[in-house]
Write a protein that binds this DNA or RNA. Structure first.
Lengths: 344, 344
DNA sequence: CTGAAAGCGCTTACAG
DNA sequence: CTGAAAGCGCTTACAG
């Protein structure tokens, strides 16, 4: 005799028995009630209500080879942009009934990362969202079959995939132009760690367009504390009057360093950041920055993904939702850290 | 004829065929190789290698009524403590091979929350970790069967469950004592939004023990910007010389408000926070606070949960791992925001 | 519209 | 130690 385990939850068979229909009819009803006669429809509805039946997602996933959940791949989830993006994804995903599973792609090496990707794919998620603020894409995207719904947020363009673009190049260009227009000879850039930094590129192009020589960008890490030393160093150089940091946390570190060096912001040096971190408007002085709509990007990614998922569910071929390229642009937010320059 | 779909991935049957063993033998090998004869063991290993076989977690989950994943329930994941805790969980969970699925318990009402909990339970996670920094516990814990592995982080004690305690009461007590010892007549408290706030209780007890009357605590929200107005207000009251904020972000808002009101920190007013936010050491001036080991708490929760999961897997009854109560205490970190008071 | 049958890829008693 | 059988709870052609 087989197991008699049976959890306490009613199965589709139990409901079918109560409603006096076959299991396949139950299944059809679950997928689309209109595929069942009115009479059975009410009987089934009553039985479901009576037994408080909820379909077993795991059994469904096995039969369909597709689980009703969204996988999110991202590096370190503690960084501001990722946290916000993940929040947007989460909220929207939950709204459409998909739980969100996270796979952290960390730097323990490519093999380890590939292991995460495989572990993810083995679980047949309905779709995958890749947060690529670190340019991890190339080592990951190729391992995701083109038949799996996928939306990439950020990163270099993949022509055959759906992707969301944050317009960082344009924003950085705009910011740099803005800082120059405030009357500064040049703008120094403190770079976030990334192989390909669109922010840096935008800064460079703006300087170039203004015929201003670009000072060497200063490299730092994601750790804001590291930026304090950079701020001090820049503060000791009186020729430095405008600093553009790759993100707000770095800008904050730089401002702290400037304070230690005895420089006032914005009187002696102006500082701008990028992202519009929650604390930027609370900083002393409040930080001029580029507002990035991370949560919106996350929500939009889910919407795009859902269209692809629907294609799969309805056996349609890859439609245009699979290669869309949408931009969710940032915008300049001016605050006191770039208040008018007061010269000696 | 049935479907001929069959994904490209090899199934246990394919491997069994290649290795010339039965499917059940394969299954036994997968669970514990020692249950299979040496000869078959090598044949199976070779076949697995050859076909690059990886067991289907969904099929396994259906058969076992338990999926190899950990569910995390939390309110707004963007708040600092939760992000950090989630990171610790994630990292440790991935280390032991369990992906992490998040279920956000938001404030869209109890019914909605209950829906999330049910949706979670329907997917039979191996275990659940509940981050209860908001005192959501009571409305959720009772819906999680005592047979489901569960670890609660924070929140009021549930005697029959495993739980991790952050020692906030003690930390707040210590901090308040410390601030008083710096020579202040009293300490004002700006409260985080929570029905039951151990931090507030610790502050109150410290004042009481020092025979100092407690000023009315000032309520605020999670939004640091709101705290700016509070800071201004406190700054306009010259009798206020020491402020203890319920978390660092609020402390930062308060400091900004004090600056607007023309008060210097720490010369005129000292300020302390709670959590040791990443940016606290970068703030100008750096913030005295209580360092909370959120990531460690998250990792520890996974370790505790794993023990319970092992009990379930091995058909053991609820052991002591199911009702453990461990503390991961915070510690005072002194920085410049509470530097010695200079009286005019 | 509807039911009997077969299948998704695993696991677990049951007999050897 | 090992294989044949039955089952986990769904879905999908296939015939009515």
């Amino acid at each position: 005799m087989p197991r008699t385990k049976r959890g306490t939850a009613p199965s589709i068979r139990d409901v079918a028995a109560v409603a006096n229909v076959s299991v396949p009819t139950m299944s059809r009803y679950l997928k689309d009630p209109s595929r069942v006669s009115e009479k059975k429809r009410v009987a089934i509805a009553a039985a479901i209500e009576k037994l408080n039946y909820r379909p077993n997602p795991i059994a469904r996933a096995l039969a369909l080879d597709m689980s009703e959940s969204i996988a999110v791949m991202s590096a370190d989830t503690r960084l501001y942009g990722r946290t916000q993006t993940f929040y947007g994804i989460e909220r929207k995903a939950q709204e459409i009934g998909y739980p969100t599973t996270i796979y952290v792609l960390d730097s323990r090496g490519g093999d380890w990362m590939l292991g995460s990707v495989r572990s993810c794919l083995d679980r047949s998620p309905a779709g995958v969202i890749l947060i690529d603020y670190d340019r991890l894409t190339d080592s990951v995207v190729s391992h995701i079959p083109t038949t799996t719904p996928l939306v990439i947020i950020g990163g270099p363009r993949h022509e055959d995939r759906a992707q969301i673009h944050l317009g960082e190049y344009d924003s950085a260009y705009t910011m740099t132009k803005h800082l120059l227009a405030l009357g500064h000879a040049t703008v120094h850039y403190v770079a976030v760690p990334s192989d390909v930094d669109a922010r840096e590129d935008g800064w460079r192009m703006a300087l170039s367009d203004a015929h201003v020589p670009a000072p060497a960008p200063i490299a730092t890490t994601w750790d804001a504390e590291k930026a304090i030393a950079i701020g001090q160093q820049l503060g000791n150089d009186d020729s430095v009057t405008a600093i553009f940091a790759g993100n707000d946390e770095i800008a904050m570190g730089v401002m702290r360093g400037l304070a230690i060096a005895g420089k006032r912001v914005p009187e002696d040096v102006i500082v701008a950041g990028f992202d519009d971190h929650t604390l930027s408007r609370v900083w002393n002085p409040p930080l001029t920055t580029i507002r990035q709509h991370f949560d919106e990007a996350g929500e939009h990614a889910v919407t795009m993904l859902k269209q692809q998922i629907d294609d799969v569910v309805n056996n349609r071929p890859r439609g245009e939702a699979w290669t869309m390229f949408d931009t969710i642009a940032g915008e300049l937010v001016e605050r006191e850290s770039t208040g008018e320059l007061v010269r000696g």
